[in-house]
Design a protein around this nucleic acid. Structure first.
Length: 479
RNA sequence: UCCCGAAUAGCUCAGUUGGUUAGAGCAUCUGACUGUUAAUCAGAGGGUCACUGGUUCAAGUCCAGUUUCGGGAGCCA
């Protein structure tokens, strides 16, 4: 029975009138006992339903409240009022689900993002989150389209892993053992994980990369796109305990190819949203512009959201080495005026303030930094000729910080073993990983792109909790 | 986790040097109006001032602790 439904987006796209349609959706507002603004989530634009006097009895009129769902059959007519080209003259109205106006939390007015986070189960019904999550969908779809077009194999790497050698952060333990202190013990008092479900200690994945490399060593190019878990006690606007990450891994590929792919990928995603989510981007751009009016002039962005995205599309990312980045920082007015809280010298890890200076002040566009000191990067990154830097690359985006982290991998077995020993990574447990270097090793590279950070960049949303449907952060696991 | 700030009606906020009955706009409810665009007009209801303890004749207001949220930092994507 529901296939007779016309989507509101489709209806509003056409100027055609005179025909009868059936629409279904949720009431945004009901004005004047006569005009219903109906929304079905296909677009932020509401369909105006005109209910003529006498069509409905008082009891039914009272049930048309904000949030109520309904099925409306009517005739599409040119609108007499301003604000919309066409409207629906109702022939019949059926309330599908009532919404108690006294209890429904959403009002036809502006709500704070903080408040809407507390009603995340209903915030999809707002314009802002409607736009954000339609764009999120588009970007996810574009991820698959991009890699599929290039012949990459989508590889599902495991969510539960026994590997704790990655060092990408604190992990969530996965166990079926009791937590009340009665778990089986070894003689030395430690927990006996041989009795656990998998017969060993297991965690939620912090990265699919190592498994991804195994795939690349057969399919040449793979990518993963799945949830990732970090048990870090991070309380910021750009960290989640559960987030989605895209990790391509390419055989026969060096750091240069890796950078090229990452830049092309990011631009592809932006272009896809520009082509397919124009209305939603325009809505968010306007929302941002209004928000910025509250700020003092020096805090406002130079570019609007759409201009920012166009600028990124039309300009190459700046590519510099870590050593060059350090030099720029050392020669910067900010450094000379001692504006940096953290000192700058070769060998340090770049701090947020340093990254922001490079991206937002110096280059004013996305920057790819390569050739980091080996000591501050992961064991699997390939050692450069100089013997002290590795073929790592981080892409830094304005307002977001690190959006991509990647590297060419160390494919030389002896070098890799040496590095693992130096970094106290148990080679025995990683034997399956090392096999790729033992049997037909090839130069290869890959990167990880934080999906939510990408959504943040495209939508302009300042807090990562507002670009994932249900955020998991320290002390918060609602819904 | 660290630094700073905040928590008052369903929402957004005001509340003076501590002072007796805690306010506004919007929302809600009732009525009016009926081509409205966050409709408008009139009226009404609505409060554990985050929580726990303390100081005081008296605490929304001062102090301590806790919780949560926001801004910044660290860890990172």
């Amino acid at each position: 029975m529901f296939n007779i439904r016309t989507k509101i987006k489709q209806l509003l796209q056409s100027d055609a009138t005179g025909h009868e349609v059936t629409v279904m959706g949720w009431v945004r507002t009901f004005r004047n006992n006569q005009f219903i603004a109906l929304n079905d989530g296909s677009t932020n634009n509401n369909l105006q339903i005109v209910v003529e006097l006498g069509l409905l009895n008082d009891a039914t009129l009272k049930r048309i409240t904000t949030g109520a769902s309904m099925k409306v059959k009517g005739v599409v007519v040119p609108s007499l009022g301003k604000g919309q080209k066409v409207e629906l003259k109702a022939v019949s109205v059926e309330i599908l689900g009532d919404s108690d106006a006294e209890k429904y939390p959403l009002q036809p007015k502006k709500h704070s993002l903080e408040f809407l986070r507390e009603v995340a189960h209903l915030r999809f019904r707002t314009n802002t989150f409607g736009s954000v999550f339609r764009i999120r969908h588009s970007l996810a779809f574009a991820v698959h389209q991009f890699f599929n077009n290039k012949g990459f194999v989508y590889l599902h790497t495991p969510i539960i892993t026994a590997s704790d050698a990655e060092g990408a952060g604190e992990m969530f333990r996965v166990t079926t053992l009791p937590i009340d202190g009665t778990a089986p013990r070894n003689e030395d008092g430690s927990i006996n994980f041989k009795e656990d479900f998998f017969g060993k200690s297991t965690n939620l994945t912090v990265s699919g990369q190592l498994e991804g490399e195994l795939g690349a060593m057969a399919f040449s190019e793979i990518y993963t796109f799945g949830p990732t878990f970090r048990a870090e006690n991070s309380n910021t606007a750009r960290h989640l305990a559960e987030f989605w990450m895209i990790e391509p891994e390419m055989a026969f590929c060096d750091i240069e190819d890796n950078m090229n792919l990452a830049e092309e990928f990011i631009k592809y995603l932006i272009q896809y949203a520009m082509d397919n989510n124009r209305e939603d981007l325009e809505f968010l751009a306007q929302r941002l512009a209004e928000e910025e009016k509250q700020l003092p002039q020096d805090k406002r962005s130079e570019l609007g959201l759409i201009e920012k995205l166009e600028f990124v599309l039309n300009n190459s990312f700046e590519r510099i080495t870590y050593t060059e980045a350090i030099d720029i920082l050392l020669n910067s007015p900010a450094y000379k005026k001692k504006k940096f809280q953290y000192d700058v010298k070769w060998g340090i890890d770049l701090q947020s303030e340093h990254e922001r200076y490079l991206v937002e002040k110096h280059f004013k566009k996305p920057v790819i930094v390569t050739g980091y000191p080996a000591a501050i990067k992961a064991f699997y990154m390939r050692l450069n000729e100089d013997g002290k830097t590795v073929a790592a690359m981080d892409i830094l985006a304005p307002g977001i910080g690190e959006i991509v982290g990647g590297s060419q991998r160390e494919e030389r077995l002896d070098m890799l073993l040496e590095k693992m020993k130096a970094m106290h990574i148990p080679a025995e447990e990683m034997s399956w990983y090392l096999d790729t270097r033992r049997f037909g090793t090839v130069p290869h590279a890959g990167f990880g792109l934080g999906f939510e950070r990408m959504v943040q960049f495209v939508t302009g949303m300042g807090n990562i909790r507002d670009v994932i449907p249900f955020a998991r952060t320290p002390k918060n696991c609602e819904f």
